[in-house]
């Protein structure tokens, strides 16, 4: 039953980008951060941007989030302009660092977006309880961010991004600063969350195994100018575990990503 509803949802395009360019004007010369980007993200997708640093993957995510304005081209998010989508709070954004407010305890950090959306105190409490249990942090409500490990803090920030039930989750290298053991565990947890919440996830990473393991669509990008080299689709079951890392399909997908990255690198130089 879950299967059928998710496949139905995956019919519609939720993010539509065509001929998008973004140039940063600097004092010396203009920097072409993004060049001629064309991309569709379907509802329910788990899509990853992968590429070397400076390839504009974070910039592209920020354009989707309306934290950065494109120079030319068109982009629609949930059928609206990114600006309208942001005003409608249609996405939750997870940053490279947890970005928790140090003077708020865990619970009240999760309440932050809810307070601004006008939820009642009772609803705030109910939602924070629900999402804390989803990320496995029940019992930590009254702790302050500095009392938690980096991995736990990032889980709080994911719970916060989910708390107001946006359609999309935009994640900018959320596990980049964590050790590999914690990262693996959080990858599995994220996959479970994706499956349970049916959200569209756009994820930025520079780790090939992470991208292949998590996503059903991998967008490989190259630097200077930032452009899309290849889009690789995989078809692993939604309830996959780390065991798939040993399968030929996984290794093949990883190989394709690696080759696309190499191609982009040769083009660039």
């Amino acid at each position: 039953m879950n299967e059928s509803s998710s496949s139905k949802a995956s019919q519609s395009t939720i993010i539509d980008i065509s001929n998008l360019c973004l140039t940063f004007e600097t004092q010396t010369e203009p920097v072409h951060a993004l060049s001629d980007i064309n991309l569709q993200v379907n509802s329910g997708d788990f899509l990853s941007f992968i590429g070397p640093s400076g390839c504009g993957k974070t910039t592209l995510l920020r354009v989707i989030a309306d934290l950065e304005k494109p120079t030319s081209g068109t982009i629609s998010v949930e059928g609206q302009s990114p600006h309208e989508a942001r005003l409608n709070r249609s996405y939750g954004y997870v940053f490279q660092t947890p970005a928790l407010l140090p003077w708020r305890n865990i619970e009240s950090n999760i309440h932050l977006p809810l307070e601004m959306s006008g939820y009642s105190k009772h609803e705030q409490k109910k939602l924070s309880q629900h999402y804390l249990s989803l990320v496995g942090l029940l019992g930590f409500e009254k702790k302050y961010p500095w009392q938690l490990s980096g991995g736990m803090q990032q889980r709080v920030s994911i719970a916060r991004a989910l708390s107001f039930d946006p359609g999309m989750l935009l994640m900018d290298e959320p596990f980049g600063a964590l050790d590999e053991i914690t990262r693996d565990r959080l990858n599995e947890e994220l996959l479970r969350l994706w499956q349970e919440t049916q959200k569209t996830v756009v994820f930025v990473t520079h780790s090939i195994p992470e991208a292949v393991f998590l996503s059903n669509k991998i967008v490989v990008m190259s630097a200077r100018p930032g452009k899309i080299i290849d889009i690789i689709e995989t078809n692993f079951p939604k309830d996959r575990t780390f065991d798939i890392r040993e399968t030929p399909e996984f290794l093949e997908a990883s190989q394709r990503v690696r080759e696309a990255l190499k191609e982009g690198h040769n083009d660039g130089s």
């Binding site: 989030a65 934290l67 942001r86 005003l87 409608n88 709070r89 996405y91 939750g92 954004y93 940053f95 490279q96 660092t97 970005a99 407010l101 003077w103 932050l112 977006p113 307070e115 601004m116 959306s117």
Partner: peptide, 25 residues
Amino acid sequence: DKILVDLMNSYSASKVHVFWKLCMP
């Protein structure tokens, strides 16, 4: 931090909210 300002923008927080919930504390 810029990242916290971005966070508030991602919630399309009003100036008043940014002031009371972020800058003042």
